[in-house]
Design a binder for these strands. Structure first.
Length: 175
DNA sequence: CGGTTTTGACCAGCGC
DNA sequence: GCGCTGGTCAAAACCG
């Protein structure tokens, strides 16, 4: 179902203003692994403070703001280079099945497009691959998918067609 | 019942 | 320094 998609990837301006081409993707990927260390990511879930949720008794909102750490997991500066690559597909559905399992963690409306952008994360433990999906307002049939990071685990399903296609389409990365 | 989606708030970067 | 914008969090709702 995804093979009919992703055959229209021209107009690279729409993906990103400063994006440049990567030679080949599946064969290459020289140093892409990059080990997005997951040591600090677990700590963020410990806190509960925050501030919303008043709904009546708001006496204890935001009990401890210390080290909220909700985002910006990086205490060091490890995340400087995160490989990301984007491509456009033409399909009716936003989520194209690439063989991995994704969990949606956000959705945001961006400025120029009237369609919101969706944020997904790979559900595999320790795999910090993210992707974001956005469909263009000018052309409703076009869906821009941006991957970020590399998977550290094999695919669950047999979707080797997808990698075939990936190898011969243009990949754009942005730094 | 457990995992996923929904959805508003929070936050950091950047531009002004 | 302030306000806008994009990215993330997390609690509740949702769904199998």
């Amino acid at each position: 179902m995804l093979k009919k998609a992703l055959m229209t990837m021209n107009k690279q301006e729409d993906i990103s203003t400063r994006s440049y081409l990567l030679p080949n993707f599946t064969n290459g990927f020289p140093g892409f692994r990059e080990s997005i260390n997951s040591t600090t990511s677990t700590a963020k879930y410990a806190m509960v403070g925050k501030k919303k949720v008043m709904e009546g008794g708001n006496e204890e909102e935001e009990k401890n703001n210390s080290s909220v750490g909700k985002k910006k997991k990086k205490k060091g500066e490890k995340k400087v280079k995160r490989p990301r690559f984007a491509f456009q597909t033409r399909s009716q559905v936003d989520i194209l099945d690439d063989g991995y399992r994704w969990r949606k963690y956000g959705q945001k409306a961006v400025k120029n497009n009237k369609f919101p952008r969706s944020y997904y994360r790979c559900t595999h433990q320790g795999c910090n691959v993210k992707k974001q999906v956005q469909r263009l307002s000018k052309d409703e049939g076009i869906v821009v998918t941006t991957y970020e990071g590399m998977h550290t685990h094999p695919t669950e399903k047999n979707s080797d067609n997808f990698e075939q296609i990936l190898s011969q389409m243009k990949i754009y990365t942005r730094s």
